[in-house]
């Protein structure tokens, strides 16, 4: 089906030119990186931009680097780039595990992490890892650069903290200083590509610190603060897990839709918590299931 809506197309090569165009078209501009979300939305007449700004020629947005314990993911880095990166797999295996659940090769070859977080959909698989690693999102606008914590990024379904005329330049993950393990558990309807019906990312740090974040069970991907308050400082035991499972209904607010009912999401979230947190803790010392192995 053809796209009916008409728009201007730009292909700037410098960030300042992108910002200039954004300033000119304001809310009527859309940035195009992978396009796997944007093009479908224009086609489906859910978006009517006046300007589509292809940023793929902005070379400086393409970097994927690990410097001084920090992973810099440029706005043009695709999911395939991340999955194929030895650094990501070795240093950030839990992030790598989450990214591997997204879409399939033909989409991952185009879709970018930056585009993904800009879409800010509730079922964002990359959300829990971003939130638990407490990534920083570096954005640039007329006023210059600013850094937004992932914790402050998600404002609502398809709403993020980016101001009009700003673009995401890079996403920075800091490697936790302590030994840690993580897990991303995703509920889909089958093993093939699916949007998460529940997503749970857990980062467990040595010394009984636990960071948990959910996606697809509320308007935005979100840290599970109540669970963390219960768990933090305590060694993981079966009875602690049981207590944590009981807290789940207070932590998440899933809805019923064509993909799953609210009741099932609540039920499986508990199973995911139990399996995910055990795996994350075991992985601190290199035990437990290999990263990438499906836990449900």
């Amino acid at each position: 089906m053809a796209i009916v809506h008409e728009f201007e197309y730009f292909r700037p090569e410098k960030i300042e030119d992108v910002i200039k165009l954004l300033g000119e078209y304001k809310s009527k501009a859309r940035l195009l990186a992978g396009g796997t979300d944007l093009v479908v939305r224009i086609k489906d007449e859910l978006e009517f931009p006046e300007a589509v700004i292809n940023i793929k020629e902005v070379e400086e947005l393409r970097k994927l680097e690990f410097i001084e314990g920090k992973l810099h993911i440029g706005a043009l880095v695709t999911f395939t780039d991340l999955i194929d990166s030895d650094i990501v797999r070795e240093q950030f295996p839990f992030f790598w595990e989450s990214v591997k659940t997204i879409a399939s090769v033909g989409v991952r070859n185009r879709a970018t992490l930056a585009g993904n977080i800009c879409s800010a959909v509730p079922s964002l698989d990359s959300g829990p890892a971003l939130l638990t690693y407490e990534a920083d999102i570096v954005v640039m606008g007329k006023e210059g650069e600013r850094v937004i914590s992932a914790l402050d990024w998600f404002l609502g379904p398809r709403k993020n903290a980016l101001k009009e005329s700003e673009l995401v330049c890079e996403i920075i993950f800091s490697l936790p200083e302590r030994k840690h393990g993580g897990s991303y558990v995703k509920l889909g309807r089958y093993k093939g590509e699916d949007l998460a019906q529940v997503g749970l990312g857990i980062l467990a740090l040595e010394g009984n610190e636990y960071r948990l974040a959910f996606c697809a069970v509320g308007p935005i991907p979100k840290r599970a603060k109540k669970l963390e308050a219960l768990l933090n400082g305590k060694p993981l035991t079966d009875s602690l897990i049981e207590e944590a499972k009981k807290l789940i209904p207070e932590e998440i607010s899933p809805i019923t839709d064509v993909r799953a009912t609210k009741e099932y999401r609540l039920h499986v979230a508990k199973v995911m918590l139990e399996r995910g947190i055990k795996a994350a803790v075991e992985r601190i010392d290199g035990n437990g299931p290999a990263y990438g192995e499906k836990l449900i």
Binding site: R189, Y190, K191, G192, D194, L195, V258, R259
Partner: peptide
């Protein structure tokens, strides 16, 4: 409500 392969799931290689 689900006239597409996003939400009408037909099997993939993994299934």
């Amino acid at each position: 409500l689900n006239p597409n392969f996003t939400d009408y799931k037909i099997p993939t290689f993994l299934d």
